[in-house]
């Protein structure tokens, strides 16, 4: 109860920080908010060109490679950006935390949320892609009623990002090395997740390696999302159970370590 009341009092702060992050992100750039969908559009074109044409095979066996790639990239980008921002949030707001009492969890969570909103805006690109391919009739994606299920993988990803964000920002207060390590980890994650390739197109000889690929919750989440918006079919229920479970466990661990360590933050930042 006490926590809820405290949260209610400071909900304004969460709103202000989300607002600030979004407003400041593109301030001083001429195109401003346009970049939220211009950036994924341009990077997708680059990736489609490189992995679809230059390196050849990636696009074979995929219904619609640009949409396939965009789905994965948007989700991955949201996950990596929001967790990175959340990781540094406590350090970046050191000046406030040292001077005024504020519930500290506000910072990582609002950083994830502000990225979530820019992610939503960037979904416009996906909608444009889908409309474009449906209208031109070239490799149209199968749009069915299952597209209405697409918020499910998105919500699971949000829970996952908040959980991982809380864990990372707690670690980051004590070991700044996490900053650099996580940077490398995100690069690894980009290639471990079937974003530019299709998982059954890989010739995997080792069983262990294929288990590692499957264990990645980003794999289940992107697969589910693609089922909804690209293949137009029901997603695999195992993906749902696994990724939801993973997300909830990480949220639980995140809240736990954050709660246990938050009073020590001020001594280290």
């Amino acid at each position: 109860m006490k926590y809820l009341r405290n949260f209610y009092k400071y909900r304004g702060l969460m709103y202000e920080i989300v607002r600030k992050n979004i407003k400041l992100q593109y301030r001083d750039s001429i195109l401003g908010m346009f970049w939220t969908f211009l950036q994924p559009l341009l990077t997708t074109i680059v990736l489609v060109f490189i992995f679809g044409n230059v390196f050849g095979k990636s696009s074979s066996g995929v219904v619609n490679y640009p949409i396939y790639l965009l789905c994965g990239r948007l989700l991955y980008e949201f996950y990596s950006q929001s967790t990175k921002r959340a990781m540094r949030s406590i350090r970046n707001s050191a000046s406030v935390i040292k001077k005024v009492y504020v519930p500290k969890y506000i910072y990582p969570i609002s950083n994830v949320l502000s990225n979530f909103i820019t992610f939503f805006i960037s979904l416009i690109v996906l909608v444009c892609f889908i409309i474009f391919f449906c209208v031109t009739g070239k490799n149209p994606p199968h749009i069915t009623a299952y597209i209405l299920l697409s918020p499910i993988p998105i919500l699971i990803l949000l829970i996952l990002a908040i959980g991982i964000g809380l864990i990372l920002c707690t670690l980051d207060v004590f070991f700044k090395d996490i900053d650099y390590l996580y940077e490398v980890f995100c690069l690894l994650l980009f290639y471990m997740t079937p974003i530019v390739y299709k998982i059954d197109a890989l010739k995997i000889s080792s069983k262990l390696f294929s288990y590692v690929l499957m264990a990645n919750p980003m794999y289940s989440i992107t697969e589910m999302f693609r089922c909804c918006v690209l293949y137009g079919e029901m997603f695999n229920i195992h993906h749902l159970i696994y990724s939801l479970g993973f997300a909830l466990v990480s949220l639980f661990i995140g809240l736990l370590v954050f709660y246990k360590k938050q009073d020590k933050f001020i001594l280290h930042i």
């Binding site: 304004g12 702060l13 202000e16 920080i17 005024v100 504020v102």
Partner: peptide, 25 residues
């Protein structure tokens, strides 16, 4: 001014700083 964001304008900072102290918009 510890809670100010230096890229934010004075007006926006009033709201931000107020929120940091737990006041509603």
């Amino acid at each position: 001014g510890a809670g100010f964001d230096s890229n934010y304008s004075g007006k926006e900072n009033i709201y931000l700083y107020g929120a940091t102290m737990g006041y509603s918009r």
